[in-house]
Computed example of a mutant assay.
Amino acid sequence: MSQESKPAARRPALRRTLFVLLILFILFLALFGGMIVGYVVLGKQSLSGVFHWSTWRHVFDLVFAP
C-alpha cells in the first residue's frame, strides 16, 4: 500500500485568493451601486456628480460636522 503523494498545496491557496478577490469585487460593485442609487435616484442629482471629490468632501463634512 503506497500512499500517493499530493502535489504542493498550491491549488487551495490559488482558490482562496480567487475567492477573496471575487468577494472584494462584489463589495466594490455594491459600493458603486449604492453610491449611484443614493446620489442619483434618491438625491435626484446627475450621475457625473457621484465621481467628483467635492461631492464626497461635502458629505463627509455634513456627517462629521462638530
Results as ranks from 00 to 15, higher is better:
residue 1 M to K: 07
residue 2 S to K: 15
residue 2 S to N: 10
residue 2 S to G: 06
residue 2 S to I: 08
residue 2 S to C: 05
residue 3 Q to C: 12
residue 4 E to F: 02
residue 4 E to G: 02
residue 6 K to Q: 12
residue 6 K to F: 03
residue 8 A to H: 05
residue 8 A to V: 11
residue 8 A to P: 08
residue 9 A to F: 03
residue 9 A to S: 05
residue 10 R to S: 09
residue 10 R to G: 05
residue 10 R to D: 06
residue 10 R to C: 04
residue 10 R to T: 12
residue 11 R to S: 03
residue 11 R to P: 00
residue 12 P to W: 04
residue 12 P to Q: 01
residue 13 A to M: 06
residue 13 A to Q: 13
residue 14 L to G: 10
residue 14 L to K: 12
residue 15 R to T: 10
residue 15 R to A: 14
residue 17 T to H: 11
residue 17 T to W: 03
residue 17 T to S: 11
residue 18 L to Y: 12
residue 18 L to A: 09
residue 18 L to C: 08
residue 19 F to E: 11
residue 20 V to C: 08
residue 20 V to Q: 09
residue 21 L to S: 07
residue 22 L to K: 09
residue 22 L to V: 03
residue 22 L to C: 10
residue 23 I to W: 12
residue 25 F to S: 15
residue 26 I to R: 04
residue 26 I to S: 15
residue 27 L to E: 11
residue 27 L to P: 03
residue 28 F to Q: 13
residue 32 F to I: 06
residue 32 F to R: 12
residue 32 F to T: 08
residue 33 G to P: 03
residue 34 G to W: 13
residue 34 G to R: 07
residue 34 G to C: 06
residue 36 I to M: 14
residue 36 I to R: 14
residue 37 V to K: 08
residue 37 V to P: 00
residue 38 G to T: 06
residue 38 G to R: 06
residue 38 G to C: 05
residue 38 G to K: 04
residue 39 Y to K: 01
residue 39 Y to M: 02
residue 39 Y to N: 03
residue 41 V to S: 01
residue 43 G to R: 03
residue 43 G to E: 00
residue 43 G to L: 04
residue 44 K to S: 14
residue 44 K to L: 06
residue 45 Q to W: 00
residue 45 Q to D: 02
residue 46 S to M: 07
residue 48 S to Q: 10
residue 48 S to H: 06
residue 49 G to H: 06
residue 50 V to M: 05
residue 50 V to D: 01
residue 50 V to G: 03
residue 51 F to W: 14
residue 52 H to S: 09
residue 52 H to E: 13
residue 52 H to K: 11
residue 53 W to I: 15
residue 53 W to Y: 15
residue 53 W to V: 15
residue 54 S to D: 11
residue 55 T to A: 02
residue 55 T to G: 00
residue 56 W to E: 01
residue 56 W to S: 02
residue 57 R to Q: 15
residue 58 H to K: 13
residue 58 H to L: 12
residue 59 V to S: 00
residue 62 L to M: 14
residue 64 F to Q: 02
residue 64 F to D: 01
residue 64 F to G: 02
residue 64 F to M: 11
residue 64 F to N: 12
residue 65 A to L: 07
residue 65 A to G: 08
residue 65 A to W: 02
residue 66 P to K: 07
residue 66 P to G: 08
